[in-house]
């Protein structure tokens, strides 16, 4: 057992998989010599060499295209897109090429690749470097979507993503990079499509993802002191979605809150809300409530960004108000 931070866990997970599979390669901007702008790939160049850990030009289409072409011809790949906002620059590659390759070729082409990217706010970077864009990817058939909240999940879900024969977009949260957690020794491999009940409760279910998980847990601690027993679920992977765990919890508690960093419209919580409303409506004791970033571009100033992104306070206050 060792304590790693979330940032170190990324390199740890990649290294675990590169040791296992000598064909696995990685490419991206500033990932080799510089060790990544978020220092998530430190040490990989030294261990695996410049043929397997390769710096690229600032060419997101070329990065995703090269990763896809290699993946479909027998070389599994990890492509880093430095900030998830830049997914917009290569959205064609991800959405029209990578995601659809298998279906539109009648199953002939496999694209075993992982797109890693730094997602989310809290860094005061403003509207073009702070977005939570996991919902952009969730809506595309053919993409798996993963967003871990702890170091051990980073390793296990990254390993599962790399071993998955389908394309996975793996969101690493910028504001979690410094957070620490216990990591067991030895190989760690998790399972995609499994949510985790990270706190048991009986009065309401709070569903969260990535940075919103620790905030939901903090809110649940305070709610417990006030006599409200909240169950907190870390969704972990949006596609595949572990609806069994989500529905089971809602049936038990009768109340659902989603805590989403993405802006309001078409956030992932809307999909979960719709599933719950369609399938366990009669088990609900009150309206489903979505707690999200407002439908605005993210501001840069600390005071405004903190106001925009759901906080533990906002989660707590919303639950108290609506459970009242």
């Amino acid at each position: 057992m060792a304590e790693l931070n979330y940032r170190e866990a990324v390199a740890h997970g990649i290294a675990q998989e590169m040791r296992r599979d000598p064909l696995l390669v990685m490419l991206g901007e500033d990932i080799a010599d510089a060790g990544g702008v978020f220092k998530t790939t430190v040490g990989l160049l030294d261990e695996f060499g410049p043929e397997r850990v390769r710096d690229t030009p600032i060419s997101e289409q070329a990065i995703i295209g090269a990763a896809a072409g290699a993946a479909m011809t027998g070389i599994p790949t990890i492509a880093e897109i430095m900030f998830s906002d830049f997914i917009a620059v290569c959205f064609d590659m991800i959405v029209n090429e990578v995601a659809k390759a298998r279906y539109m070729t009648g199953g002939q082409i496999s694209v075993p690749m992982v797109i890693r990217t730094a997602n989310g706010g809290g860094s005061r970077f403003g509207a073009q470097h702070s977005q939570s864009v996991e919902n952009w990817c969730m809506m595309i058939p053919g993409l798996k979507v993963v967003a871990p909240s702890t170091p051990v999940d980073v390793i296990g879900l990254l390993a599962a993503s790399i071993r998955d024969p389908d394309p996975v977009v793996f969101f690493e949260h910028k504001s979690l990079f410094a957070t620490k957690g216990e990591v067991p020794d030895g190989e760690i491999v998790d399972t995609l499509g499994t949510a985790a009940v990270v706190r048991q409760g009986t009065d309401c279910t709070i569903v969260a993802l990535a940075l919103m998980v620790p905030r939901a847990l903090e809110a649940a601690d305070r709610l417990a002191e006030e006599g409200i027993s909240a169950e907190v679920i870390d969704v972990r992977t949006l596609v595949p979605l572990d609806t069994e765990t989500l529905l089971g919890s809602v049936v038990k508690t009768g109340r659902l809150y989603t805590v989403e960093e993405n802006p309001r419209l078409c956030g992932w919580g809307a999909e979960i809300t719709s599933i719950v409303a369609e399938e366990v409506f009669w088990d609900l004791d009150g309206p489903i409530v979505r707690i999200t970033t407002p439908h605005i571009p993210l501001p840069s100033a600390e005071a405004l960004e903190d106001l925009a992104i759901p906080s533990a306070d906002r989660v707590h206050d919303t639950v108290v108000k609506t459970m009242g």
Binding site: G65, N96, E97, A101, Q108, I109
Partner: peptide, 28 residues
């Protein structure tokens, strides 16, 4: 597309497959 013939696809978004061909070349 016919992978068994090395025909790795016909791509209908202009330009994308040039980047993908790079990847196949890298793989080789």
């Amino acid at each position: 597309t016919s992978v068994e013939h090395g025909m790795m696809g016909s791509y209908a978004i202009v330009g994308a497959h040039l980047c993908i061909a790079n990847g196949a070349a890298w793989s080789a």
